[in-house]
């Protein structure tokens, strides 16, 4: 039978666990990455598949949020057109710190096959990107792996975001 109630008195005395602030904060941050529900093109279909029951992002604590105020990861899934770039940047600006960005697929990384006048040639021209995810479109496993890489990256970072080099890359 599983013991559901913790018997503190029988332990070392008090329920104490020693850790550093960095580790504790990053443990919380990395295990509840909430991406913004924001799809631009066909990569968004793979992103939806990753969120749905077969690939199941929820088990990683990754739950899509419909508001940029509640999200801390932005997955740029698809072709970013120049007309839309302004709004993508605005959504990024509306997200609260700390925030991370995954550029998903060839189009978001470099403009991909859209070597035209109307496509942003890589979203890193307007938004600082943490993880570049190759593929056209990347499979849901690839996005899961990217999310796990992002978790690793967050755990490596300082809890004080001003100590991280990414702050210096921020443009505005």
């Amino acid at each position: 039978m599983a013991q559901h109630q913790v018997n503190y008195a029988s332990a070392a005395g008090l329920p104490i666990a020693l850790t550093s602030v960095d580790k504790l904060v990053n443990w919380g941050r990395s295990n509840s990455l909430w991406p913004l529900t924001y799809g631009l093109a066909c990569c968004a279909i793979e992103m939806m598949a990753s969120g749905a029951s077969r690939y199941d992002f929820d088990r990683m604590g990754t739950i899509f949020r419909a508001s940029p105020r509640q999200a801390d990861v932005m997955i740029l899934a698809g072709t970013l057109s120049k007309k839309h770039s302004e709004f993508a940047r605005r959504l990024y600006d509306q997200m609260t710190e700390p925030k991370w960005v995954i550029s998903m697929g060839s189009c978001a990384n470099t403009g991909g096959m859209f070597n035209t006048y109307a496509t942003v040639q890589g979203v890193d021209r307007i938004i600082p990107v943490d993880i570049y995810l190759p593929g056209c479109a990347p499979r849901p496993e690839t996005l899961q792996y990217a999310m796990m890489m992002l978790q690793k990256k967050i755990r490596r970072e300082s809890a004080n975001m001003n100590n991280n080099t990414k702050q210096n890359l921020r443009l505005v």
């Binding site: 770039s85 470099t110 403009g111 006048y117 109307a118 942003v120 890589g122 021209r125 307007i126 443009l171």
Partner: peptide, 30 residues
């Protein structure tokens, strides 16, 4: 032109950051 004129190639930079950020961000790599 298929890949856009000068206005098109700097459109998102001019719109979001302003013309003075052209040097910071650099030209498009096509």
């Amino acid at each position: 032109p298929m890949i856009g004129d000068e206005f098109a190639s700097w459109y998102e930079v001019d719109k979001i950051f302003g013309k003075e950020y052209r040097d910071v961000i650099g030209p498009e790599n096509r």
